[in-house]
Nucleic acid binder design. Sequence first.
DNA 1: GTGTAAATTGACGCCATGTCAAGTAAAAAT
DNA 2: ATTTTTACTTGACATGGCGTCAATTTACAC
Lengths: 197, 197
Amino acid sequence: MSSKNKDTRTRILEVTWHLMEQQRGQGVRLADVAAAAGVSRQAVYLHFGSRTELMIATTAYVDEVKGLNDRLQQLQNITSAHELLEKSITIWGNYIPEIYGLAKAMLSTRETDEAIAAAWDKQMDCLRNACQDIIDAFIREEILTPEWTRSKAIEMLWTALSIQNWEQLTIECGWSTSQYIEWMKTFLKHAFTKLEN
Amino acid sequence: MSSKNKDTRTRILEVTWHLMEQQRGQGVRLADVAAAAGVSRQAVYLHFGSRTELMIATTAYVDEVKGLNDRLQQLQNITSAHELLEKSITIWGNYIPEIYGLAKAMLSTRETDEAIAAAWDKQMDCLRNACQDIIDAFIREEILTPEWTRSKAIEMLWTALSIQNWEQLTIECGWSTSQYIEWMKTFLKHAFTKLEN
DNA sequence: GTGTAAATTGACGCCATGTCAAGTAAAAAT
DNA sequence: ATTTTTACTTGACATGGCGTCAATTTACAC
């Protein structure tokens, strides 16, 4: 099996991620992680030092494996601002379900943990940049609704695309991934742009 | 002192609320609550039985004192749908800062606590109803953007007005209460209605 | 004064994180 | 071949909240 060949550190990271997704970021104890990885609880401490460090390392690992940044790079050569918005939402909407459990754990831990908060903010930067690119494209094409300020539009867009909103719409309201994507497109298109039709 | 005359139960509730606001819902221990109320830790258990029950009782107490429902009742005789949206956002935007700490504590606890989750959902009903009234008013006046379904519009509006979004915009992005209110009005008006100008 | 309700005091169990020290097993170095 | 190093195990223990229990004390009512 491939997972048995991997080194202990990677195995712990993978198992942590798996448990986070499985339990939606809740109630994942280090003892569970260790047991699932087939090592002692102390081995986790030897490799990561603390729960916080394990979570940060797992986030980095997932980022590496899933590569949101790479996916968003594909948007570089898009011409139309509306296409940019739509493709961004599609990428983001398909990405969230894959990292939701870990994201949720990070979000709840960050309140009391500076290091987690910093690591999370760093991850969020890439979404913020995407939002900035979108609003800048709207401005370039002169289709941003005139009331908006550049910075206010960016921040509102970023907020609308938050994981908490995805959670509320999909998990609480029961929307499917494609419903989330489609309605979010509708929502944001109307919120920020003058429509030409 | 008025607070000294109040019975122990009320004093505990008030102190809990105060500490929750002061510490933004984080790190409020029952020992702190007891000390601040001038009673023993056990007295808290005698009155409320558990942390969960204390939080639920505090939520009910705050609801009673702050009366969001009463404030929203003022909207009953509003004619224009846009006015309804704007006044609702104003009321909501001024309400959140007063209950934010407690709300945050409830939000983070609800993940692992069924009773808290149920109590919170009950509180949220009144916002949901307000959102429903707004969308229905848009439909009645035939100004809802045609793409929207009634239920999807209600759910999206409800999500946009979530406390997490308020938190992100005000605390993380640094918006003032009035900025939140004004930009949220702009945002939602464009997102859901055909504009007549 | 005796009874009762409200609260205090202090001890204890539980559980997760985190720490410590001693031991083991296999690969690497000499 | 033996030592050393590396990676990990084992088990015990400290800490800090929550929650529970039992034995008081305080205060007021009758």
